[in-house]
Write a protein that binds this DNA or RNA. Structure first.
Lengths: 213, 213
DNA sequence: AGTTCAGTGATGCGT
DNA sequence: ACGCATCGCTGAACT
């Protein structure tokens, strides 16, 4: 079988793989599934687990040297030494459509902005800004009251964790530096125990928010 | 062609895909690559990009209903409606070896622990603990001096970011609560501009550490 | 090109 | 099972 590096292909081969770049890895000889897409993406999958064993994201360039396949991208290199080919296929058509997805953090954010006064219990809110920019990163939602109190809201689509608390606190620190009074909020469907503890110690409040759809 | 849900297979098919679970998505009809592994992993790949369009991680259970493939796992469901099959393969052998990887954060941490006195410039360190446990999460490296000053060190294999700063500060907060004097450190090969700023404002120090191998 | 964050993140390790 | 941190994370949006 002749592998064409100019075409997308799907290949099951007995091979070994070496990677060098940000990290360095080697994969002992075995039968693996090798996928090469039109945009340069290279995936080497083993017989279990979600993640490919080795890979290169879109933009990689593939070449052939004897029984070696070499893929390079931004100073990273994958070398596949092929011992034998079980089968090889070039898809005639391979669609590039995207999925349409809902129940993302963005959707939850819209709900929160709509219900902001009920959720915070603050009827004096006069302005709500999503993606509020600060030098310490963009804040999911900022709601400003008539008396210029800033509600700083971090939204999570899943569980709020210690890491969410730290993220929120980082934003709060910015407003502390510019002497602006704030109230910090976590809003999400769930929260971890550690986050509850941490939030309590720093007067951060959590509001449970569920997806409506 | 007859798809056997009891075996791992690779399938190129014209199909449409619906997912419902934590989120909800749909994929318009097209030609996609469907991979089913022995551990239940299901991957549906389009003709570009690293990430699968739809997927289920290991543990999913697959069944067939007419021209539908239905995979379920923990209240999440993927439904593939198959319109036509381009080709279908069942790998006879598909290895489950793991890659051996180096230059991970763990490797960098070992270097840092070895060179801890040089990196901190503190010759009075008497004890170094990796994975130091606190209620606010485990700290990469803690080094304690003869006078009980705690060096709190957050290690990153790539670039230190604002998020790294916030993570470190969260650990520092714990020691503040128990009235223990600390010095906060970021150690990594690189650091982002925002992180430099944030660290400067909170007397966190950064040390550049490169992989030796 | 650099920075930041979401993700159906997944995965591994600890409790 | 939950909690937490890493990942060669990738991908997207914005500067």
């Amino acid at each position: 079988v002749d592998i064409r590096v100019s075409k997308p292909f799907i290949l099951l081969a007995n091979c070994e793989v070496y990677y060098d770049g940000r990290a360095k890895s080697s994969l002992v000889p075995g039968d693996y599934l090798i996928i090469r897409k039109g945009d340069g993406t290279l995936l080497i999958h083993g017989g279990s687990k979600f993640n490919p064993l080795n890979y290169q994201p879109s933009g990689a360039i593939l070449r052939k040297e004897g029984n070696k396949l070499i893929s390079t991208r931004k100073r990273e290199t994958i070398t596949i030494i092929i011992h034998s080919i079980m089968w090889y296929r070039e898809p005639v058509e391979w669609s590039e459509n995207k999925i349409e997805i809902s129940r993302t953090e963005y959707d939850l954010k819209l709900q929160i902005i709509r219900d902001i006064k009920e959720l915070t219990g603050d009827r004096t809110i006069k302005e709500v800004t999503p993606e509020f920019k600060t030098p310490y990163g963009p804040i999911d939602v900022v709601a400003i009251t008539e008396t210029n109190l800033f509600h700083i809201i971090e939204v999570k689509r899943g569980k709020s964790t210690l890491s969410s608390c730290a993220q929120l606190e980082r934003y709060l620190n910015y407003f502390k530096e510019i002497n602006t009074p704030t109230k910090g909020w976590l809003m999400s469907p769930d929260i971890s125990k550690g986050a509850v503890q941490y939030a309590a110690n720093r007067s951060i409040e959590w509001r449970k928010v569920l997806f409506e759809v």
